[in-house]
Design a protein around this nucleic acid. Structure first.
Lengths: 124, 124
DNA sequence: TATAAATCAGTAATGATTACTATTTTATTA
DNA sequence: TAATAAAATAGTAATCATTACTGATTTATA
């Protein structure tokens, strides 16, 4: 990713404005409201570049889709096996990042996914 | 997964005996040494069941493959973007699991993936 | 402006994973 | 232990999220 493009900006804006963890296709549909003829391949290419550049996170929870997150601050992803939703939880201390840095491994990003059942699904 | 099967046992044994994080296909090739006519579908089905039963972990690092882990104790996965290897690092405190439990979310498993460059790749 | 490099839209291809079916294995019950 | 029901298997075909490709367009550089 060396050049600016309005497609890239629009994709990033969609991700910055949502607190969900959308798939490439959801982002595609959303960006099409602004750029109707954008191609799905462009969305995938830019998501890949934005992830490589550390501007967004790619989160995989095992549901068969790549999910993307515009919030790159250290936080925990709570994936509900009941409804499939991904919720966020802020971390007071980034303990894990500190642990990773203790090793000879040069870390740039850490992703946390907790699996379980959310409050709503527990009741039903 | 209600019944025993020798295929399931063989798959689990392969995972318990390695400290790598193999793909379904790698496990398939390994199990074929014992059960030559096992089918790849059987491997996938059992990996899915073993994961659901909490006997193994499914770890996704974004390389296009599902990786499986026979070690279910809380530990950090260090994924090297250079060589693609997944290394383990033990955690002294399971801080994140505690954080997850503070919420209304009933957690059963937490997976940690740190992205970066390993010692070997840094030198080259 | 002119040139080179990067990105794009549109479409086709890929391949890891899942679904399907007839057969075999396992568990249950008498 | 034999008979029955339920679950798992081997083998194969289908799926579909993602990637690759190509000629046209946009961006950066000077």
């Amino acid at each position: 990713m060396k050049h600016y493009s309005k497609q890239r900006e629009a994709i990033l804006e969609v991700l910055r404005k949502t607190d969900t963890h959308p798939t490439a296709n959801w982002i595609y549909e959303k960006v099409r409201e602004k750029i109707p003829n954008i191609s799905l391949g462009t969305v995938y290419r830019n998501l890949s570049g934005l992830t490589a550049d550390g501007e967004i996170l790619k989160v995989e929870v095992g549901d068969g889709f790549e999910h993307f997150d515009g919030d790159i601050s250290p936080h925990l992803h709570l994936y509900c096996k009941g409804c499939g939703k991904i919720m966020d939880q802020k971390l007071k201390s980034d303990y894990i990042s500190r642990v990773a840095k203790e090793s000879d491994f040069k870390t740039d990003t850490t992703i946390y996914v907790a699996y379980g059942i959310c409050k709503n699904c527990k009741q039903n």
